[in-house]
Nucleic acid binder design. Sequence first.
RNA 1: GGACCCAUAGCCAAGUGGUAAGGCAAAGGACUGCAACUCCUUGACCGUUGGUUCAAAUCCGACUGGGUCCUCCA
Length: 445
Amino acid sequence: MKIFNSYTNKLETFVPHHPNRISMYVCGPTVYNYIHIGNARPVVVFDTVRRYFEYKGYNVQFVSNFTDVDDKIIQAAKEANVPEMIISEKYIKAFLEDVVALNCKTDYLKPKVTEYIPQIIAYIQSLIELGYAYIIEGDVYFRVSKLAEYGKLSNRKLDDLIAGSRVEINEKKESPLDFTLWKKTEEGLHWHTSFSDGRPGWHTECVAMIDDIFGEEIDIHGGGTDLMFPHHENEIAQSLAKNHHHVARYWMHNGRLNLEGEKMSKSLGNDIKVKDLNIDLKAYRMFLLSTHYRSPLNFSIEALDVFVREWAKITKTVESLHRTLDLHDSLESNVIVTAGDIMEVIDYFLTSMDNDFNTPNALTALNQLMRSINQKMRQKLDYAWLNQALRAINDMLSVLGLEVPLIRLADEDRVLINQWEQARVDKDFALADMLRKKISEKGLL
RNA sequence: GGACCCAUAGCCAAGUGGUAAGGCAAAGGACUGCAACUCCUUGACCGUUGGUUCAAAUCCGACUGGGUCCUCCA
């Protein structure tokens, strides 16, 4: 399969370092607020990547961190007059609730910065010893000039960066490009080290965690394009200095989500919280997957509405297929797909996913299969075909994280539906309407 | 100011050298006891303009219009 590697800017054949095993790390949230719908994009994208790898039989070691040491958390804690931990724990919990609602898996390793302070300090210490970092008045900075390759990931030249007048002016640093590894401070959570009492900068946590957890260059590092510079560039810089590798063999970056054509971010205050969307979030997940993960995506209520309807259609089709088979006592398990038309759709689905996770085309395959299912449901029922179609569509939905919950009919429901059918045959429409109402109220129609 | 990306039907969106997938909306039709659901049919000279090529939405240049990054941000 092919993956677009942001580091080389090329579509590359993906080969994991270890056979059957894939190591993945995705930059997680800074937990000082509820996540907005843009924050949900990488979460859904990389959950889908993981699901596809697992579908293909790989054992995926998935790690995503929580940044729980940060200026904004300190500020929020001050405002609420509580310890920082209260703030971060609250929003970690909220994050996981949103993530579950988006149907993302949560059984992955979730390291927190506060749990990784010794490793982060040790990492910084090594960088100092290797001459890649220097201490000034208790602050520790990374010496960018020592690394010839700096700027390769984000594809920019050092001269341009310096020329850009927006680079922070800090008299203490050797160069304006040097970034903070450790900040001397008495404010908020801080720790004692030989350089000073303070706390880590943002850029070391991910590499320290990856180093500790995986102990080697990982297969995939993911995150939003806006993290490419400086965050990921700085991760690579530190890793090259200390471990002589680029953190990950494949770097994946998802495009931004914009709101009505404008950038959405917490700092601009125009963000919509995931928890405020007020819809079945699988519809939102589907919306996110309807555009290729690397393209920018424009959010609007109208665009989302399309997928609210689409999701309803999927739900209805799959439920109806399952119920039809159930009603006729024809549900089979461990079905193997042999029907040519279904195999063709599966093939299109897999080819699409193999091509740098082309989920829009994967959704096209899903639509094709749905149409076939709805066609066959109006004809004389072919149970073997329908079982295969159910298997196929469930597999696809599971890869995309769009599973439709299916439950077997209770005996009383089965009776009810049969009575309704009979009443219609008998043309007893008063009874039929009454039964239909009952069935409908049970959500079985 | 610097770097980079994008521009396909009313809307969303694949396709990245060989004569335009899919979805939504719209219109017409079918099915149905009434409904709902569903099914069928109908739509594009691929922003403008030069060039390369037997052949370009697809490659190169210019222009126009959007967007992202350079600062915390997913």
